[in-house]
Write a protein that binds this DNA or RNA. Structure first.
Lengths: 209, 209, 209, 209
DNA sequence: TATGAATGAGTCTTCATTCAT
DNA sequence: AATGAATGAAGACTCATTCAT
């Protein structure tokens, strides 16, 4: 019934086809990103996307079979943008303080990226599909962040830059607070000032200077 | 679109009508609560509610003109349940430690109330209506909680039970973490153990024992 | 996805509901019969039926979820009309010759019932759903006819009215020819004269007079 | 709707073009035959044919403007295959018994050619276009078969091989039965055994051995 | 008050057909 | 000749909302 995405299997004979398809997909994703940022996930219809992209109904179906498919690519594109800076490299070369600063700045960006941000849509998507068990992804993302932060704190302890007894709990607590800020920012907005204050407050708990 | 609520203005002619109306509304709210808890906000249709209540389509419209109207009452009913224990009274009579414990317990309940909870639906509602500016409510709820906690901490400082320099920041930080836990619990589940650990961890930051 | 027929489970509290539903269904079936007779099966759309019935799109979906559902009821209604004359009674009381005449007349009616007949639609339906295995019904109908005819011939043999060595083969052969006439009549038309001639020819093979 | 056939008028400039066109058409017809055999007539879309042929959408339109056009050529190709053995020659040289055997064998093939046969599609086509008056073809095919058989029977009478009073009626009756078997085979399947029995039964009616 | 049949607008999805390359 | 991306019309289906009873 749902015949899914057509044109996914592009790029057979030469790159031209693939490029065309990709550029069209890129256009769709760009416009769709705005739509999802503005309307969340559930209320977005294929019609909305079609209108935003100024293409035909059938044209969209050539590339995506449902809003969910579009959304997945939207999120993937967003994630790709963000992981440009190579985390592993940073983890290997920077000092713990530099790392923490980087980590916190990333989180701050994520918290404040309200306009044109997908937090709202992502939560909606997560919530709406909770039953379907797409829960793992979100959990993994959270636990990864906790692990990264824990690692940073441990190094800071060793180098004497930080002073934090229970790094695991500290990291987790910090991530909860950050997660809370994300929701608050998405729900009713948080000024940069407020976010800065809170992040500073958190960091002071285990830093000297 | 919304053709206006009928039956909102209850209790006109005599108490009999009002009582009948109220009991019918109560039935609707009860059943609708389950529906919203199970399906979130956006995907709930008037049809869903009608079927859950086993009343007629027209019957529902006698009392509520849209899912949003029902939802508002559902939330209101939920909130009413929770504020049974008079906060003011507590605030006046209990010791700061007792107060904090009560506060934290309430939050814990809110975090863990996953099954049959409306967190999901509330977020969805908040997100979906962000544009419409129903943001204030959520913000107020958050700020009120911060204020209450701040107040508790201040008293604890005075009584010597707590030791917390910046009560305002402390309270806010704690609420962010709690908010974060709510989302995590709703999104991918948190064990009671984890919640307890985190809450203890937070409280230890300004308590002696 | 397809949520099927609603209102099927009528007639709970009183007959009024059931009657209303039934009369509405009857209207739909009546009009739909004409549509199927005119257009066959596959090319009939819900829209066609809606327009023939002069009701709303949603109104039709209240009773039937697909053209197939409508068609099944159309056929059932047709069949009900035809089995008014009680076969069992006939089989018990009539002489073999009378029975054969009755049987042949019935078949003749079926063959010639072109205008406003569903033969075409039935074949189309049978063909279109062949894969889906709704084959049994058609086969049963055919085999039943063969069995009835065989029975009639056997009695005729016993009573001396007929003279037919292999009643089973005779019956089967006759039904093939009748089936062939049905198709020919449906496909390109057969005059009553031609049908009469053929039926006479068949019967002469085992009758004296 | 049908925008007219392109490429029908082949063989204009030189034979090269014509040959190329013909071989391409042959490819299309071959693949399309399978599609029609598998799916009948109505449910076949240009898309289906395009995919089966592994050519482009536009490519198909170069040769055929609709499924109907393709189908006509499919049937024509099939018929051409079958009349390889020159009927006239056979009619002239063979004995009546040989002819009858050949005729019956051909019919048997037609009846049993279920897999990869076009009976279903043909019926569907005939039914679906009844209004359009493409009725003549089917009628002619039937009457031709009757005439051929009548001719065979007449010769058999003359040569003393057969004994058949009314050859015209006999032939017609036989063709009805065969037509009936075709439908039964297409609708719900007939074993070769059953077909053999029936054909033997029919032939015994005017043969001695 | 209460019912539930009926309506119709809105969205989804599929294809025949065109057209620039 | 051949390609396949793009279009848009057509039909399916679902619900919010109304209304006669």
């Amino acid at each position: 019934m749902a015949n899914g995405t057509k044109g996914q299997d592009s790029g057979r004979e030469n790159t031209t086809v693939s490029e065309k398809t990709d550029s069209k997909k890129k256009l769709i994703i760009d416009k769709a990103t705005e739509v999802f940022a503005a309307k969340g996930f559930r209320s977005v219809t294929m019609k909305d996307i079609v209108e935003a992209c100024e293409i035909s109904r059938g044209g969209l179906y050539l590339y995506y079979g449902s809003t969910e498919e579009v959304f997945k690519d939207v999120v993937a594109a967003q994630d790709a943008d963000e992981s440009d800076e190579n985390v592993e490299k940073l983890l290997a070369e920077a000092t713990p303080s530099q790392l923490l600063l980087w980590f916190v700045k990333e989180q701050k960006k994520a918290i404040l990226r309200r306009k044109n941000s997908l937090v709202t849509a992502k939560y909606e998507y997560a919530f709406s599909n909770r039953e379907a068990g797409n829960t793992k992804e979100a959990k993994d993302a959270f636990e990864t962040a906790v692990a990264v932060l824990d690692n940073i704190l441990k190094r800071g302890n060793e180098s004497g830059e930080f002073e934090c007894e229970d790094t695991a709990m500290c990291a987790r607590n910090m991530m909860y607070a950050i997660e809370g800020m994300k929701v608050c920012a998405a729900e009713f907005g948080l000024s940069e000032k407020k976010v800065d204050n809170e992040l500073l407050f958190i960091m002071q708990q285990f830093m000297e200077a």
